[in-house]
Simulated assay, not measured.
Amino acid sequence: MEKIKALLTKEPELSSNAITVLKKRYLKRDAEGNLQETPKEMFQRVAINIAQADLNYNKDADIAEIAKKFYDIMVDLKFLPNSP
């Protein structure tokens, strides 16, 4: 996982409003409610998890390549998955 994270280096350019929403709703927290990741780390986490799903359909899937593509479209704000 760390090897893949090393490929996901582009910094997201987010407005202060976007950062506020991420802090309130999407960034990981510990049991006491303290933030445990940055927006960049969240994008990395999501990209890697989405990429790993491809292993269900193709055992030879290049997870690093898929994660990189997904990460790039997220940090470029071209596609942002979310949950209600």
Rank of each mutant, 00 (worst) to 15 (best):
K3I: 04
K5M: 03
K10E: 07
K10L: 06
E11P: 00
P12K: 00
P12I: 04
P12F: 05
E13H: 15
L14S: 01
N17H: 03
N17K: 01
N17W: 03
A18E: 07
T20N: 15
V21A: 02
V21Q: 10
V21F: 06
K24E: 12
R25I: 05
Y26S: 09
Y26D: 15
L27C: 06
L27N: 08
R29W: 00
D30P: 08
D30S: 08
E32I: 06
E32D: 12
G33P: 02
N34L: 06
L35C: 01
L35S: 08
E37H: 05
T38H: 03
P39V: 08
P39W: 13
E41N: 01
M42L: 14
M42D: 09
I48C: 07
N49E: 14
N49C: 13
I50C: 14
I50L: 11
A51H: 15
A51Q: 05
Q52E: 14
A53H: 09
A53Q: 08
D54C: 13
L55W: 05
N58E: 02
N58P: 03
D60N: 06
D60I: 04
A61Y: 06
D62L: 14
I63S: 04
A64M: 13
E65T: 12
E65R: 13
I66W: 02
K69Y: 09
F70N: 13
D72S: 13
D72T: 15
D72N: 15
M74A: 08
M74T: 05
M74R: 14
V75A: 07
V75M: 09
L77S: 13
L77D: 14
L77C: 09
F79S: 11
F79Y: 14
L80I: 06
L80T: 10
P81M: 03
N82I: 12
S83Q: 06
S83E: 13
P84C: 08
